[in-house]
Design a protein around this nucleic acid. Sequence first.
DNA 1: GATAAGTTTGACCAATCGGTCAATTCATTG
DNA 2: CAATGAATTGACCGATTGGTCAAACTTATC
Lengths: 211, 211
Amino acid sequence: MSVAVAKTPRASVREGREKSIFDAARSVFAEFGFKGATTAEIARRAGIPKANLHYYFATKEALYRHVTAEVLTDWLSAASSFDEKDDPAEAIAAYIGAKMDLARADPLGSRIWANEILRGAPVIGDFLETTLANWLSSREAIVRRWIDQGKLVTMEPRYFFYMIWASTQHYADFEGQMMALNGGQPLSDEQFETAKKQVIATLLRGVMPQF
Amino acid sequence: MSVAVAKTPRASVREGREKSIFDAARSVFAEFGFKGATTAEIARRAGIPKANLHYYFATKEALYRHVTAEVLTDWLSAASSFDEKDDPAEAIAAYIGAKMDLARADPLGSRIWANEILRGAPVIGDFLETTLANWLSSREAIVRRWIDQGKLVTMEPRYFFYMIWASTQHYADFEGQMMALNGGQPLSDEQFETAKKQVIATLLRGVMPQF
DNA sequence: GATAAGTTTGACCAATCGGTCAATTCATTG
DNA sequence: CAATGAATTGACCGATTGGTCAAACTTATC
């Protein structure tokens, strides 16, 4: 098996085109949702004729499914950071940090997710009911154990996860609103770091007994 | 001036039609955003021919502006509950409670707002930059005073408000996701009350020094 | 360098889009 | 009950939608 084989011009052109279509699709789906997105606008942002887009992705829905699949993968990747620590404070802080970083690094992914939920999750519904539901159940069990051990205050773990998701994804989904409230400027790296620390501090403080 | 004058059949028919169109428009805009919404679907949900819809609202955008105006009014109405108490814990709890109740009573309004932000707030942008920015500034000043008085932990008030908005509106915008994670069932009244209490408790605990 | 395979694109299609309009129905008023 | 104005609606408009197709073009292979 060859490693890092030099791509033929053909293959790399294909790769580049698919990438540029994919990126353009992400931005359009994030902004307008599936229904509001048009293949013409995606092609325009990708800088190619519409017919060329349909050569690489047969239908708008096929393209959308590719995009959402990646979003779900990224979500799960960030979720894994919850499991890397045994201490509740560390696990929660790591998870919130990872979710904040994801919202900052890839706001479009979060917005695609949000749009999908807003229209009733016709495409990722299965994922929510199976993979996500299972993830939540098992992490609820972990949090419940911590509560029983007196390491966290009494609470319903599920609603705590909702707060984490809401508070972190807000920085992606409502970036436009934050910009409007920040003198038209996007949050600087310093502002974002402050926000991130504060979200972690407030949520930790909200559920840790020793404070 | 007559009070509660009996409406003529004509006037009340007009009122009823406008209301049913308005409600249908709310649900379609909430689900698909402005771009994804179609006047045909709005008319279908209102149970009238499309031409009749255009008799009452000349354009899709005019209808959308009517809908958003109401959303902003409701937002400000809930916001006023922050000012009714002098004690920080009471003010914050009242505000979170009001925002939770609004998300529960009118999830569509929150979703219309979310869709508007996702596409860059072309219609409510002015509101965000003026009315909302002013509201936030003045309440930041109040929170800062409480911090100086040692009634709240040191923090950046703005990011705390973002957490409140995120955590509460999440119950409207992501209702579909919560349903999928709740065995396909919407949150019961009891579940919602538990969630509401927990959001208040966690956020209060997160910023109150005495805990 | 000829042939085949992969890629690009303008032109085009039926369906749907937001919106118009004239004809009709309806309720109100003198 | 005649006349007036408000309300209703099917038919229709040009523009846009997602998608197709054949012809042209580019790269790889023998």
